[in-house]
Amino acid sequence: MKRSGTATGAYNNVSDIRLKKDIKPLLSSLSKLNKLKGFNYYWKTDSSSSSLKTGVIAQEIKEIFPELVQEDEKGVLSVNYIGLIPHLVEAVKDQNQQIQTLK
């Protein structure tokens, strides 16, 4: 099972406000992200490549951000990494506010 690919150019996700409803701000992103762990690993099924990978564990993400995890028909979990970006943005803003308060 090959799980990598390359592309040139930009990849854009549709994000137009006109296509959204029930918009609510993210809350507690910093405390949620503090519960996550990043890992280095090798794929078990990719014997042709011994390159080190970096990522998260879908089961752990599912506990904190269930909306970012999908399960396929075989029960294999995948993570919407792009969906983590808004939480990272809010966490940086929270940290910046804490830094400003400390100054």
Rank of each mutant, 00 (worst) to 15 (best):
Y11P: 00
I61M: 14
P86Q: 02
Q97F: 02
G9E: 11
S47M: 08
V14T: 13
Y42C: 14
N40I: 05
Q70M: 06
V79H: 00
V79M: 01
S48V: 11
K44H: 13
L26F: 08
L26C: 05
T6E: 08
G5L: 01
L88I: 14
Q97K: 15
L33F: 02
I82W: 00
D16Q: 13
V14E: 15
I64D: 02
L36A: 08
S50Q: 12
P86T: 02
E63R: 09
S78P: 02
E63S: 11
K103W: 07
G55C: 06
Y41C: 08
M1Q: 04
D72I: 02
T54K: 15
E90R: 14
A7T: 08
M1L: 07
K103A: 12
K44C: 09
L36I: 12
E67T: 08
S47H: 09
G55L: 05
S49N: 12
Y11K: 09
L84T: 03
L19R: 09
S78M: 03
D16R: 11
N40W: 06
Y11Q: 07
I61R: 02
Q70L: 05
L19T: 12
V79L: 02
L30H: 07
N13E: 11
G5C: 04
L84V: 04
S15A: 15
V79E: 00
A91H: 05
L52Q: 15
Y81D: 00
D16M: 10
V69E: 00
Q70H: 05
I17D: 15
I17R: 14
T101E: 14
D72L: 01
K74H: 10
H87S: 11
L30K: 13
S49M: 02
G5M: 00
F39D: 08
K2S: 12
K35D: 10
N13G: 09
S47W: 03
S78E: 05
W43Y: 14
A91P: 11
K21F: 12
W43E: 14
K93C: 00
P86S: 03
L33D: 01
T8D: 11
Y81N: 05
D72C: 04
W43C: 10
A58Q: 04
S49L: 04
K103D: 11
S50R: 10
D72S: 01
S29A: 15
V69M: 03
S49V: 04
G5D: 01
T101M: 07
M1T: 09
Y81K: 03
N34T: 07
L19M: 14
Q70S: 13
I61Q: 04
A91D: 04
K93A: 06
S48I: 10
M1S: 09
V76P: 00
N34E: 13
A7V: 04
A91Q: 07
I57Y: 11
S50N: 14
E71G: 01
E71R: 05
S78N: 05
V79N: 02
A10G: 10
L68E: 00
S78A: 09
K62M: 14
D72P: 03
Q59P: 00
S29G: 08
G83K: 03
A7R: 10
N13S: 13
Q59F: 05
A91S: 15
S48W: 06
G5K: 01
K35Y: 03
G83H: 01
P25T: 06
R18T: 13
D94Y: 02
A7H: 12
N40P: 00
N12F: 12
G75H: 09
